[in-house]
């Protein structure tokens, strides 16, 4: 599915025209052109995120002993380009640790994380994160929050940045709220700002840590539908952490079940796209997958 805003046909010419615009601008403005170009080159299903024997332990000292917990792993996994991957697991199953390792926010105790063939050494704007509690900066307006990533990663000039910010706020349906402060918004709106902030840097990969975990069930479904709509417009690799089987099934191409830090199941979800979260939940295939995942969990 191509971004309707981008009217550039995928051809050698379009690519050459892009080249003149400068690397930064092109990445920010036309992420899909790249995505589609990658596909056209016959590199579909190329691995973009690879985990090799990845393991992370945490140590807590208690008196004269220390308690070592293996939070995650060892895990070996490959995630394909432009896939929407749901990581499903109960509390304490290592989901968040996995995401933070891919993000580069924590370092592995053993093993490697490779993103686009490079070993992850730290965080970077190619892997934007949407956090559980939106984690907006309360001292910045909505607009300034969305601009944050562009400022910090120095990806866009001032004029371009404003344009990107407005486009993204419109995309998440908050076009009129640019001047508000986060504490003046509802929880659902804050999460949308968090999503816009992550998307603003046009990340190659989007990492989402239970982004809708703190909103009510109905809003959660609505936000899920909105995320799907946005993703269909502008596809990229998404790693989506959740503890909700329904949410994982509705959104993902592939669901990986984590249990006690290990991969307990790895299921491809072949439900047709674009998906309607309302309709899909009655699909017999959906119900069967749901039952089997609940058993593993």
């Amino acid at each position: 599915m191509q971004n309707p805003d981008v009217e550039v046909p995928v051809s050698e010419n379009a690519h050459a025209a892009d080249q003149e615009e400068g690397d930064e601008l092109r990445r920010v403005r036309f992420p899909t052109v790249f995505a589609v170009a990658r596909r056209a080159n016959g590199v579909k299903d190329q691995t973009v995120i690879e985990l090799r024997e990845l393991c992370r332990t945490f140590v807590v000292q208690r008196g004269r002993e220390e308690i070592v917990t293996r939070a995650l792993g060892p895990i070996t996994l490959s995630i394909a380009d432009l896939q929407f991957v749901g990581i499903l697991g109960r509390s304490g199953s290592g989901k968040t640790t996995l995401l933070r390792l891919i993000a580069g926010l924590v370092q592995p105790t053993a093993g490697d994380v490779l993103v686009d063939g490079q070993r992850v050494r730290g965080p970077g704007p190619d892997r934007a994160v949407v956090f559980q509690q939106s984690a907006l900066y309360p001292w910045r307006t909505v607009e300034a929050n969305v601009r944050l990533g562009l400022e910090l990663s120095r990806l866009a000039k001032k004029g371009t940045a404003d344009e990107i910010v407005h486009r993204l706020l419109d995309l998440v349906g908050l076009g009129d709220f640019g001047g508000y402060y986060p504490n003046q918004l509802s929880g659902g709106m804050q999460q949308r700002v968090g999503l816009a902030r992550a998307l603003a840097v046009s990340p190659r990969h989007l990492l989402m840590d239970e982004p809708f975990g703190s909103v009510d069930a109905i809003l959660r479904r609505e936000l899920g539908a909105e995320l799907l709509r946005i993703w269909e417009l502008d596809r990229r690799t998404v790693v989506f952490i959740t503890h909700s089987v329904e949410e994982a099934l509705t959104l993902s191409d592939r669901v990986i079940v984590l249990k006690d830090g290990l991969v307990a199941d790895d299921v491809t979800i072949n439900l047709p796209r674009p998906r309607d979260p309302e309709a899909i939940s009655d699909d017999p295939a959906f119900l069967q997958l749901r039952r089997s995942l609940l058993t593993t969990l």
Binding site: A103, G104, L105, G122, P123, G124, P125, R127, A128, V129, F131, Q133, A135, Y137, W139, R140, L148, G149, E151, L152, S153, V201
Partner: peptide
């Protein structure tokens, strides 16, 4: 810590981390 994490995920420099995240917080 989330304030710091957010800035780090965008690849903030040490100086920006101080100016734009720690200082206002």
């Amino acid at each position: 810590p989330h304030v710091i994490d957010v800035a780090r995920t965008f690849g903030a420099s040490r100086l920006d981390l101080l100016r734009k995240a720690v200082f206002p917080a």
